[in-house]
């Protein structure tokens, strides 16, 4: 396996010399091709800032991020983000299909017709056949989210960064969406990095869970989830391996919270 994304001793701080607010400090991580990795951490630890740094949308203050063996200095080709705020991330003046096609603008080696066909195929894969010419605001929140995920997949990126994509949906939809995401990752051989605050979700989805420390954050533990795929909402969640991994991560995060409360 080869690393497609690495961060080395990366740091990010806001403010000037006097009111310096460090968010990330000395963070290192590495994502291999074909993996599904989850990033979890206590709330407010700087997950979204980290994701923005990894995506090249904001520049780190120290260290560097490398993507496909190149230093990241802006949003690199081959890396897509599914933003948490999907309703804003989808462009409301474009139809669902045009939003997907917008995500494919940097895909090479395909003419317009081929892109349209591919876009329709991916919309079908997320269960949205028949909604191609609807606008995002004409469909439900859950459907908008699937359009956003479809757009991320359609970009044919080496790496898909998912910023709490399921934070806003109800529990039942959430479980369905988790399985849909895993399915899509499998089907399109998509390497994924999922940022979430939900420990169960992090463990259920991932091959590896990276646990972030409190702010200024860094990776404090790596938990390898040795569970077979495809996963199953009932069987997997009752598997001792799952329960053990979940316990380990939850324990870590609870300890951090206690230390913060007593400090």
């Amino acid at each position: 396996m080869t690393a497609i994304l690495t961060a080395e001793a990366m740091g990010k701080a806001y403010g000037g010399r006097e009111n310096r607010l460090p968010i990330i400090e000395g963070l290192s991580l590495s994502i291999q091709r074909g993996e599904f990795v989850s990033l979890v951490g206590p709330s407010g630890c700087g997950k979204t800032t980290l994701l923005m740094c990894l995506a090249g949308l904001i520049a780190p203050s120290e260290g560097q991020v490398r993507f496909m063996d190149r230093a990241v200095e802006g949003p690199p080709i081959g890396l897509s983000v599914v933003f948490q705020d999907y309703s804003r991330s989808l462009l409301p003046w474009k139809t669902n299909l045009d939003n997907i096609l917008f995500g494919m603008r940097r895909v090479v080696g395909m003419d317009k017709a081929a892109k349209r066909n591919k876009a329709k195929e991916i919309l079908a894969a997320v269960g949205l056949t028949g909604f191609e010419s609807h606008y995002p605001w004409q469909v439900s929140g859950g459907m908008q989210q699937r359009v956003a995920i479809a757009r991320g997949i359609a970009a044919q990126s080496e790496l898909l960064l998912l910023d709490e994509p399921l934070a806003a949906v109800d529990a039942q939809t959430r479980a369905d969406m988790q399985d849909l995401l895993l399915d899509l990752a499998q089907k399109f051989q998509q390497t994924c990095l999922l940022v979430t605050h939900d420990v169960e979700e992090a463990v259920y989805m991932a091959d590896r869970v990276l646990v972030l420390g409190p702010r200024p954050t860094r990776v404090v533990r790596e938990v390898v989830v040795g569970l077979p795929k495809p996963r199953d909402q009932l069987v997997t969640r009752e598997d001792p391996v799952f329960l053990h991994a979940r316990h380990e991560v939850l324990q870590l995060i609870r300890d951090m919270r206690h230390r913060k409360a007593s400090a």
């Binding site: 949308l57 949003p75 890396l79 804003r88 991330s89 462009l91 940097r106």
Partner: peptide, 13 residues
């Protein structure tokens, strides 16, 4: 204009 929309554009190059 929402920064999410701007970031979406930046991300797609």
């Amino acid at each position: 204009v929402s920064p999410v929309q701007v970031n979406t554009g930046r991300m797609f190059g």
